[in-house]
Write a protein that binds this DNA or RNA. Sequence first.
DNA 1: CCGCCGCCATGACATGGATCAAAGAATAAA
DNA 2: TTTATTCTTTGATCCATGTCATGGCGGCGG
Lengths: 253, 253
Amino acid sequence: MTHIDFAYPRDSNTQTNGKTDPAGEIHPCSACTVRTLTVCAALEAEELRRLAEILQTTRFDAGHTVFGEGDPAETLYNVTSGTVKVYKLLPDGRRQITGFLLPGDFFGLSVNDSYAYTAETVTPVSLCRFPRRRMEALLDEFPKMQRRLFSMASNELAAAQDQMLLLGRKTAKEKICSFLLLLSQRASRRGHKTNPVHVPMSRADIADYLGLTTETVSRTFTQLKTSRVISLLEGNKVQIQDMDDLLDLAEGA
Amino acid sequence: MTHIDFAYPRDSNTQTNGKTDPAGEIHPCSACTVRTLTVCAALEAEELRRLAEILQTTRFDAGHTVFGEGDPAETLYNVTSGTVKVYKLLPDGRRQITGFLLPGDFFGLSVNDSYAYTAETVTPVSLCRFPRRRMEALLDEFPKMQRRLFSMASNELAAAQDQMLLLGRKTAKEKICSFLLLLSQRASRRGHKTNPVHVPMSRADIADYLGLTTETVSRTFTQLKTSRVISLLEGNKVQIQDMDDLLDLAEGA
DNA sequence: CCGCCGCCATGACATGGATCAAAGAATAAA
DNA sequence: TTTATTCTTTGATCCATGTCATGGCGGCGG
C-alpha cells in the first residue's frame, strides 16, 4: 500500500521478536526510517530529531501477528525490512488480504481507537514503532508531516480503488498478471531489480490477496509459464519474459 | 465513501447543468456545505469565511459526467443533494464502481494532476466546487482543515478495505445484504429514515459496485424477497424485515 | 392513446473458478 | 540420513454465477 521511494540498507542489531529498543536514541534502524521521512517530506533537522526521539525498533520472525483486528490502536508502524500482510476475516474464516507492506511502507494508522484489520509478518521483519499519542502531538506541531501522511493516505486510496477493479472485474489470469506487474513496479520504485521479481509470499497469501484459491493461483502460474509469459526461478523469483505482454494480459486488452 | 454526519436541507436556486455561481458570496447551497464543514471540523469563523469565498455551486441532471478518468484534477467537489457514482473502466468496457457519494461526501481529491476515476451523476445532483489551488492554499493556512481531510481519507480507506473483503470473498447474497446494510447505515448517520431504505441506483449500477451482473442482482433481490428478508416498495425503497437477519446474511454467519 | 425505449425479471444453458482428492517438492524436525 | 510437515502442483468433478434470450412493465414523446 503506501510506499515511499527509498530503499533501506540492511541493518542487523535490533532486538528480536517483540522486544523493543528503548526510545530516545537514534538507532541504525531508526536512522533509516528517519532518512525515509527526510526524503519524502523534506523535514527540518528539528522535526527529524523529534521523530527520532519517539520511535522504537522491533524485530519479528515470519508468521508473527503484529496486531489483530479490534486491538486498541496505539502504534503506527513503518517497515524497515521484510514483508508484512494485512487482512480482514469473515466469521467463517474466509480471508481477504488488503495489502502487502514492503520496506518504507507505513501501517497501523487508525482514526478509531482500534485497528480495522490484522497485521502479520510474511518473512522475518523489522519495524519502527511510533507511539500514537506522541505521533499525533508531533503532527499537530509539524503540519508538513501531517501533509505528507495525508498524501500517503491518498495514494493508498488510489491503490485500493485499483484493487477493487481487480477483485470485482478481472479474470484469474488478469489478476495474476496485475499482481506480478504491481510487484515489479514497487520493486522499481524502491530501486530494486524489477525483472526477476521477488515474490516472498505463499500461494495461499496470493490467493487471499486476489480473491482466488491456491489451486487457481498455482494453475494460472503454470499456464503463464507454459505460454512463455513468465518463468519461475530459484528462490521465489519470477522472470517476466515480455513486460508489454504482461501489461496487456493484466487489462484483458 | 467519506461521509459526514449531517443532512442537508433542500435548496433550490442554484444554476443548472454545469453553470456555476460566481465565487465570493455565501449562497444558500454553499451555506449548507460550509455548515457541514463547521459541524465536522469545528472551524473558526475566519476559516468559514475563507471557505465560503472560494466555493462555487453547480447543478447537474441525472447521467451527467462530472469529470472523466485522466482529466486534469482541478476541483474538489462536495455533494449537496443527489447521488454520484465514481468508477474505473477496463479497456474492454468492464466497469467497477468504487463508490456512491451521498450529500455531505467529498470527491475529486487527487494527489496527482489527474483524476484516477470517472464521476457521474446517478440522480439530479447539486455540488459545491472548491478550486484545487485555492483549497490547497487554505489547507496550508489552516492545519485543522488539513487534519479533517486526512481523517476523512482514513475513513474512506477503511471503507475501501471492507469493500475489498466484499468483492474478494463474499457470495452474491452476502454482497447484496451488505449493500443494503451499508445504505441503511449511511442513511442513519445522515439522520434519515433507516428502514424503508432509498435505493436510487439502477440494478446495473449495483451490479458494477458489487462485482456482479444485473441478472444476478435481480435474481438475488427476488430471492431475498421470497425468503421474507426484505420487501420491495414503491419509489425504489427497500423494506428490511429483520435487521439482525440481514446482518447475519451479510457475513455468512 | 399508442408505440418506442430503457429497465427489470426470469428462464435455459454455459463456464470459470471452486471444491475435493492425491501425488510430488520443499523444508523442517528427529 | 530419515521422517514429519507443510506447500505446491495437477487431475476430476461440481456449482455459483455469467451469458444469452425473451417477455413484462413503466415512462415519455408523439
